[in-house]
Amino acid sequence: MGFKLLSKLLVYLTASIMAIASPLAFSVDSSGEYPTVSEIPVGEVRLYQIADGVWSHIATQSFDGAVYPSNGLIVRDGDELLLIDTAWGAKNTAALLAEIEKQIGLPVTRAVSTHFHDDRVGGVDVLRAAGVATYASPSTRRLAEVEGNEIPTHSLEGLSSSGDAVRFGPVELFYPGAAHSTDNLIVYVPSASVLYGGCAIYELSRTSAGNVADADLAEWPTSIERIQQHYPEAQFVIPGHGLPGGLDLLKHTTNVVKAHTNRSVVE
């Protein structure tokens, strides 16, 4: 069995187990497998329904001669939608809004960016022009300005110390501490036991640490421990890039980060 097929099978099995364990909360999309990078042309966006009122959005972007996937989250909030992270750029984010209108038909009224990198804030200006209120932590807003990236308009308070959590509509926002970046936030959907790890969490097929220019490698494993301790009931975990899975993604990420750190020390 090929690795790609095995990865998709694991996603399907995880979703099936969740649907059985929580039949009222989960209505997993039966329309197909989780979209992969090879299936999404740059400039297009796919939506994948995880649970009743919960979707991931998947886009792709060219970077350094390669094409990478990027995940975000959409959560229903009454007759409105909360968006977590842009679709990595203005063109993708405009396509995301169009796809949401086509498939869901509810307005996106608020959006949260989970850290300051372009795959999370690139497209904020498109959201703002569409009347979406954009939010991020003060740290993310400051770092985005320093980096020359787009800056969300509103500040999220109460997320300055490791372990801080605040309720934001249908989700809980959690600051686990520094990891992929010093400002990275985690998003949890309690009604569906869905954990969105953003770039602080890796997919299972990833074996290298990737972009760690703004990471705190020493603190990252401790931050992941905080996530595990705060959300032990999480059933569906979405990484910032690639295929979702279960809580095993947290341990896998820790292993990859520690291996990278150990290699760096040896070198």
Rank of each mutant, 00 (worst) to 15 (best):
E157K: 11
S62W: 07
A129W: 08
T207L: 12
Q103M: 14
G105A: 13
E150A: 05
K258Q: 14
E44G: 15
Y48P: 05
I100H: 02
S38R: 10
V11A: 11
T140D: 03
T86D: 00
E147T: 14
G89L: 04
V166L: 12
P35N: 06
D119G: 05
L247A: 14
R142E: 14
G89F: 03
A136E: 03
T182Y: 13
K102G: 11
P170H: 03
V132K: 03
T114P: 02
V108E: 03
G131V: 05
W55F: 06
T182A: 13
W88R: 01
L47S: 02
K258I: 10
R46C: 06
S155D: 13
A87Q: 00
L250C: 01
A215N: 06
S208M: 12
Y34Q: 08
V108T: 06
L127C: 00
P152L: 03
S205P: 08
G78F: 08
V212K: 05
D248M: 08
S38V: 08
V42E: 15
Q61D: 05
E157A: 12
L247Y: 15
I20N: 13
L73F: 05
D214P: 06
G163C: 00
F3D: 07
G2F: 15
S181K: 03
I104M: 05
S193I: 06
G123Y: 05
S208G: 10
E80W: 05
L249A: 00
L249Y: 04
G2Q: 15
A218T: 12
I238S: 03
V257S: 01
A200Q: 00
G122S: 09
L247C: 06
T153G: 09
V187W: 01
A215H: 05
G53H: 09
I58L: 09
T14M: 08
K251E: 12
G122I: 04
Y231M: 02
S7V: 10
F236V: 11
V257F: 04
L5M: 15
S16Y: 15
V266C: 05
R167L: 11
A133Y: 10
L13E: 07
F168H: 01
E147W: 15
L127R: 02
H180P: 03
V126F: 12
A144K: 03
V121G: 02
D52L: 10
A90T: 11
R120L: 02
Y188I: 02
E172W: 02
P107I: 08
G122E: 08
R46I: 12
L127T: 01
G210T: 05
L247D: 08
I201Y: 04
P232E: 07
T134Q: 00
S70P: 05
V132P: 00
W88Y: 00
V124D: 04
L195Q: 00
W88V: 02
T60E: 05
Q61A: 13
H241Q: 05
H180D: 02
L13P: 09
W88H: 00
E172R: 02
P239M: 00
N255A: 14
V124Q: 04
R226M: 08
V237G: 01
G122M: 11
K91I: 13
P176F: 00
T93A: 03
D52M: 09
R142V: 13
Y12K: 15
D29K: 10
Q49S: 11
L10C: 14
S161A: 13
W88Q: 00
Y231L: 00
N149L: 14
E267T: 06
I20G: 15
D248L: 07
G32A: 12
T109M: 11
L249P: 00
E33K: 13
E172I: 04
T140K: 05
V54N: 03
R167F: 10
S208H: 11
V121E: 00
E157I: 11
V126W: 08
E39P: 09
G177W: 03
L195M: 05
T134N: 01
L73N: 01
W220Y: 07
